[in-house]
Design a protein around this nucleic acid. Structure first.
Length: 425
RNA sequence: GGAGAGUUGGCAGAGUGGUAAUGCAGCGGAUUGCUAAUCCGUCACGGCGAAUAACCGUGCACAGGUUCGAGUCCUGUACUCUCCGCCA
């Protein structure tokens, strides 16, 4: 959500920003509508003022005057009601548009239409060269007897997964490793539910943009969360913090659910794209200062790069272009880890600065120390680790000729000290 | 699933249907003079405005209703607490 006053005062800038984001918004129409809303506010408030004056005079009025004043006040009340109904109708139209406005992109974000125009910032780690014929992660799971994926699909449907023994442990070990790392960086580790009411979806900016992507259970009027970001973003909604409360850092773990409605036929093999997965999410709430949030953005990026380095996975950092960013985002990096079987990098992390766009939707504010002014916070989010997707590059990059999997040194304490894992078919 | 109690500003906490007390914190100003204190104002959102001025409107969990007038009365919903039932 954006500030309408900012839009009125920076109309050209806003139009350019929307265009860069690939959003077709009638900004002039919005401003005209806003004027109309304000006119109706002014007129109805004038009526309310007069009505209050009449009402308040009744108590001290003489018994003879009273019926007269009451009649007048009642009549005015009906006019006021009619005016307020007009206002409510226009206000609803206005609000509907406001909820659909994207954030403006950073001036530093590359301008582009889609993912082909994302910019590679750097590549880190060496792509492995195998002196044997490398296998893809599905074959590796089968060799080690680590999967029941075919059976589980019969029970749970497509895009489900079931993994066993050493691999199941590895999945959880990755999360524990990341939680410990985030805790060491000052994050509050928190496990959160996957159930969400509707309001947080608007707060995050999932709705009204991507309704088809989310599971909904009408019997209970409740949704399944696609990421802990959803929950963490609303955890402190409507609070008025002090500047000293900031920054607030959460490392949120939750099962995540996505319908993958727009991805029919994509990544149907293996663990890359499943309906239910686990994610440990980095979430930051900081003060309303773009230098401050950009600093945190870099910090979050650094942490996730370290995680991939700790897991000894080659990766690239992408700066996402304006047209490929989601509506909420000011600036976005994606991390992609190398997947040998696909001979390309695939997304494991997505790191975003949302500035105050979500905070306006959740009404999360703080009082600043310098002036005692109330401001909206900035929010940022980044993947810590998402599994099973992260297992794909992990298995494939660390595979050995015999199908066993090498465990990077940093992860070994979480795998009972093992340097390799090997299952039995 | 059932019964009861509750929800008032950043926090604490009053409030018989007639303009939301008071304290603390924060911010602004003034005074005194010394390891700080006192006094005054301000303290959410919005309208009108050049304005961070004045004035006005809206805010007492949320949504309706009754009334000239609702924090207060009525209905519904959400959430919190206590208890009963069921339960990993």
């Amino acid at each position: 959500m954006l500030d309408i006053k900012f839009i009125a005062e920076n109309t050209q800038l806003v139009k350019e920003g929307f265009a860069k984001k690939n959003f077709d918004i009638d900004v002039d129409g919005l401003l005209t509508l806003h004027k109309r809303v304000n006119q109706l506010k002014t007129s109805s408030q004038a009526m309310a003022e007069e009505k209050n004056r009449l009402s308040n005079s009744i108590k001290s009025a003489s018994p003879e005057e009273r019926p007269n004043i009451i009649a007048k006040s009642r009549e005015l009340g009906e006019q006021l009601k009619a005016e307020q109904e007009k206002l409510a109708a226009e206000q609803a139209k206005f609000d509907d548009i406001m909820w659909r406005l994207p954030n403006l992109p950073s001036p530093q974000s590359p301008v582009g239409v889609d993912d082909t125009e994302n910019v590679v910032v750097r590549k880190v780690g060496d792509i492995p060269h195998f002196d044997f014929e490398p296998k893809d992660h599905v074959e590796l799971m089968e060799i080690n007897g680590w999967t029941e994926c075919e059976r589980i699909a019969k029970v749970c449907g497509s895009r489900s997964y079931a993994i066993t023994n050493e691999l199941a442990r590895l999945e959880l070990a990755m999360h524990l490793y990341v939680m410990d790392k985030l805790a060491a960086n000052g994050f509050r580790v928190i496990t959160v539910p996957s159930l969400s009411k509707e309001k947080p979806l608007y707060g995050q900016g999932y709705l009204p943009f991507a309704k088809d992507e989310i599971y909904y259970m009408p019997q209970d009027d409740i949704y399944l969360s696609g990421t802990a970001e959803l929950i963490l973003n609303s955890l402190r909604a409507d609070e008025l913090l002090t500047e000293n409360d900031l920054p607030i850092l959460y490392a949120g773990f939750s099962p995540c659910f996505r319908r993958e409605a727009g991805a029919a036929g994509k990544d149907t093999r293996g663990l890359t794209r499943v309906h239910q997965f686990m994610k440990t999410e980095q979430f930051v709430i900081c003060k309303n200062d773009v230098n401050e949030s950009e600093k945190w953005h870099q910090k979050l990026l650094q942490i996730s790069e370290e995680i991939l380095q700790d897991f000894e996975l080659p990766y690239q950092v992408l700066e996402v272009c304006t047209g490929d960013m989601g509506a909420p985002k000011y600036r976005q990096y994606d991390l992609e880890a190398w997947v040998p079987s696909q001979n390309c990098y695939r997304e494991t992390h997505s790191c975003s600065n949302i500035t105050d766009w979500q905070a306006r939707r959740t009404n999360l504010r703080y009082r600043d120390n310098a002036e005692g002014k109330v401001r909206f916070v900035h929010t940022l989010n980044n993947t810590g680790i998402a599994t099973p997707r992260a297992l794909v590059p992990f298995l494939e990059n660390h595979q050995q000729a015999d199908g066993s999997i090498r465990i990077p040194q940093k992860l070994q304490p979480y795998m009972m000290g093992k340097t390799f894992i090997k299952g039995q078919k």
